[in-house]
Amino acid sequence: MLSNSIDQEIKSAMLAKDQAKLRGLRAIKAAFLLAKTEKGASTDIDEETEIKLLQKLVKQRKESADIYKSQGREDLFNIEQEEISVIEQYLPAQLSRDEIKVIIENIIQEMGGATQKEMGKVMGAANKALAGKADGKLIAEIVKSLLS
Protein backbone atom coordinates (compact mmCIF):
# COMPACT_ATOMS: atom_id res chain seq x y z
CA MET A 1 0.00 0.00 0.00
CA LEU A 2 1.08 3.52 -0.71
CA SER A 3 0.35 4.71 2.82
CA ASN A 4 3.16 2.51 4.21
CA SER A 5 5.72 3.93 1.81
CA ILE A 6 4.53 7.48 2.60
CA ASP A 7 5.47 6.94 6.26
CA GLN A 8 8.98 5.88 5.23
CA GLU A 9 9.28 8.83 2.84
CA ILE A 10 8.25 11.25 5.61
CA LYS A 11 11.06 9.94 7.81
CA SER A 12 13.55 10.32 4.96
CA ALA A 13 12.37 13.86 4.21
CA MET A 14 12.70 14.80 7.90
CA LEU A 15 16.25 13.49 8.02
CA ALA A 16 17.11 15.29 4.79
CA LYS A 17 15.41 18.48 6.07
CA ASP A 18 13.49 18.67 2.77
CA GLN A 19 10.61 20.96 3.78
CA ALA A 20 8.82 20.97 0.41
CA LYS A 21 8.74 17.19 0.22
CA LEU A 22 7.74 16.93 3.86
CA ARG A 23 4.75 19.29 3.35
CA GLY A 24 3.55 17.31 0.34
CA LEU A 25 3.93 13.96 2.07
CA ARG A 26 2.16 15.15 5.19
CA ALA A 27 -0.74 16.36 3.05
CA ILE A 28 -0.97 12.91 1.46
CA LYS A 29 -0.86 11.18 4.84
CA ALA A 30 -3.55 13.50 6.24
CA ALA A 31 -5.83 12.82 3.26
CA PHE A 32 -5.38 9.05 3.66
CA LEU A 33 -6.08 9.19 7.40
CA LEU A 34 -9.18 11.29 6.81
CA ALA A 35 -10.45 8.84 4.20
CA LYS A 36 -9.90 5.91 6.55
CA THR A 37 -11.84 7.55 9.37
CA GLU A 38 -14.68 8.65 7.09
CA LYS A 39 -15.44 5.05 6.22
CA GLY A 40 -16.06 4.37 9.90
CA ALA A 41 -13.64 1.51 10.36
CA SER A 42 -9.87 1.73 10.49
CA THR A 43 -9.56 -0.43 7.38
CA ASP A 44 -7.05 0.31 4.67
CA ILE A 45 -8.21 2.19 1.61
CA ASP A 46 -7.80 0.60 -1.81
CA GLU A 47 -5.44 1.75 -4.53
CA GLU A 48 -8.19 3.34 -6.62
CA THR A 49 -9.26 5.50 -3.67
CA GLU A 50 -5.64 6.48 -3.04
CA ILE A 51 -5.27 7.67 -6.63
CA LYS A 52 -8.51 9.67 -6.43
CA LEU A 53 -7.31 11.31 -3.22
CA LEU A 54 -3.96 12.21 -4.77
CA GLN A 55 -5.70 13.68 -7.82
CA LYS A 56 -7.93 15.73 -5.54
CA LEU A 57 -4.90 17.07 -3.66
CA VAL A 58 -3.21 18.07 -6.91
CA LYS A 59 -6.38 19.74 -8.19
CA GLN A 60 -6.78 21.73 -4.96
CA ARG A 61 -3.19 22.91 -5.12
CA LYS A 62 -3.46 23.90 -8.78
CA GLU A 63 -6.54 25.98 -8.01
CA SER A 64 -4.77 27.64 -5.08
CA ALA A 65 -1.67 28.24 -7.18
CA ASP A 66 -3.76 29.96 -9.87
CA ILE A 67 -5.30 32.25 -7.26
CA TYR A 68 -1.92 33.08 -5.74
CA LYS A 69 -0.45 33.75 -9.20
CA SER A 70 -3.29 36.13 -10.10
CA GLN A 71 -2.79 37.98 -6.81
CA GLY A 72 0.95 38.29 -7.36
CA ARG A 73 1.84 36.08 -4.38
CA GLU A 74 4.84 34.29 -5.91
CA ASP A 75 5.95 32.98 -2.49
CA LEU A 76 2.69 31.10 -1.92
CA PHE A 77 2.49 30.10 -5.60
CA ASN A 78 5.93 28.47 -5.36
CA ILE A 79 4.93 26.52 -2.23
CA GLU A 80 1.88 25.11 -4.01
CA GLN A 81 3.96 24.19 -7.07
CA GLU A 82 6.49 22.36 -4.88
CA GLU A 83 3.73 20.36 -3.21
CA ILE A 84 2.16 19.53 -6.59
CA SER A 85 5.46 18.10 -7.84
CA VAL A 86 5.81 15.94 -4.70
CA ILE A 87 2.24 14.59 -4.87
CA GLU A 88 2.42 13.90 -8.63
CA GLN A 89 5.34 11.52 -8.03
CA TYR A 90 2.86 9.08 -6.47
CA LEU A 91 0.30 9.30 -9.27
CA PRO A 92 0.37 7.04 -12.33
CA ALA A 93 1.82 8.67 -15.42
CA GLN A 94 -0.70 11.01 -17.05
CA LEU A 95 -1.62 10.41 -20.68
CA SER A 96 -1.01 13.04 -23.33
CA ARG A 97 -3.87 14.90 -24.99
CA ASP A 98 -3.43 12.84 -28.19
CA GLU A 99 -3.50 9.53 -26.28
CA ILE A 100 -6.67 10.58 -24.47
CA LYS A 101 -8.29 11.62 -27.75
CA VAL A 102 -7.57 8.20 -29.31
CA ILE A 103 -9.09 6.37 -26.33
CA ILE A 104 -12.22 8.55 -26.39
CA GLU A 105 -12.59 8.10 -30.15
CA ASN A 106 -12.48 4.32 -29.60
CA ILE A 107 -15.16 4.60 -26.91
CA ILE A 108 -17.39 6.59 -29.27
CA GLN A 109 -16.87 4.00 -32.03
CA GLU A 110 -17.72 1.14 -29.64
CA MET A 111 -20.99 2.92 -28.81
CA GLY A 112 -21.80 3.00 -32.52
CA GLY A 113 -21.20 6.71 -32.90
CA ALA A 114 -22.53 9.06 -30.28
CA THR A 115 -24.34 12.37 -30.53
CA GLN A 116 -24.24 15.41 -28.28
CA LYS A 117 -27.24 13.98 -26.40
CA GLU A 118 -25.18 10.95 -25.36
CA MET A 119 -22.36 12.98 -23.87
CA GLY A 120 -23.15 11.68 -20.37
CA LYS A 121 -22.76 8.05 -21.47
CA VAL A 122 -19.50 8.82 -23.27
CA MET A 123 -18.19 10.77 -20.26
CA GLY A 124 -19.02 7.89 -17.93
CA ALA A 125 -17.20 5.37 -20.09
CA ALA A 126 -14.26 7.73 -20.64
CA ASN A 127 -13.88 8.54 -16.94
CA LYS A 128 -13.92 4.84 -16.13
CA ALA A 129 -11.36 3.98 -18.82
CA LEU A 130 -9.06 6.88 -17.97
CA ALA A 131 -9.37 6.82 -14.17
CA GLY A 132 -6.14 8.10 -12.65
CA LYS A 133 -4.53 8.62 -16.04
CA ALA A 134 -6.10 11.92 -17.09
CA ASP A 135 -7.67 15.05 -15.63
CA GLY A 136 -11.48 15.09 -15.69
CA LYS A 137 -11.58 18.61 -17.13
CA LEU A 138 -9.41 17.56 -20.06
CA ILE A 139 -11.54 14.47 -20.68
CA ALA A 140 -14.72 16.59 -20.74
CA GLU A 141 -13.12 19.10 -23.10
CA ILE A 142 -12.05 16.39 -25.56
CA VAL A 143 -15.43 14.58 -25.43
CA LYS A 144 -17.24 17.86 -26.06
CA SER A 145 -15.01 18.66 -29.06
CA LEU A 146 -15.46 15.18 -30.57
CA LEU A 147 -19.25 15.16 -30.17
CA SER A 148 -19.90 18.62 -31.59
Rank of each mutant, 00 (worst) to 15 (best):
G132P: 01
L25E: 03
I139R: 01
Q81E: 14
A31I: 07
Q8P: 05
Y90R: 01
G113Q: 06
G132H: 01
L76Y: 13
Q109I: 13
F32W: 03
L15E: 14
I28C: 05
S5P: 02
S145T: 12
S70H: 08
M111T: 09
A16R: 14
L15Y: 09
A13E: 04
R26Q: 11
L54C: 03
M14W: 02
I67D: 10
D98H: 12
M119W: 00
V58M: 05
S3N: 12
L130Q: 01
Q116D: 11
I87A: 02
I45R: 04
M14V: 09
Q8T: 15
E38Y: 08
M111W: 07
Q71N: 11
A129C: 02
K29R: 15
E48F: 11
I103R: 13
L95Q: 08
R61I: 02
K117P: 00
A16K: 13
Q19S: 08
A65H: 04
K39R: 11
K121E: 15
R23G: 02
A65E: 15
Q81R: 11
S70Y: 06
M1I: 13
Q60H: 10
A31K: 01
A125N: 09
M123I: 11
I104Y: 00
A16L: 12
D46R: 02
K39H: 04
I87E: 01
Y68S: 09
E47L: 07
A114G: 05
E83H: 04
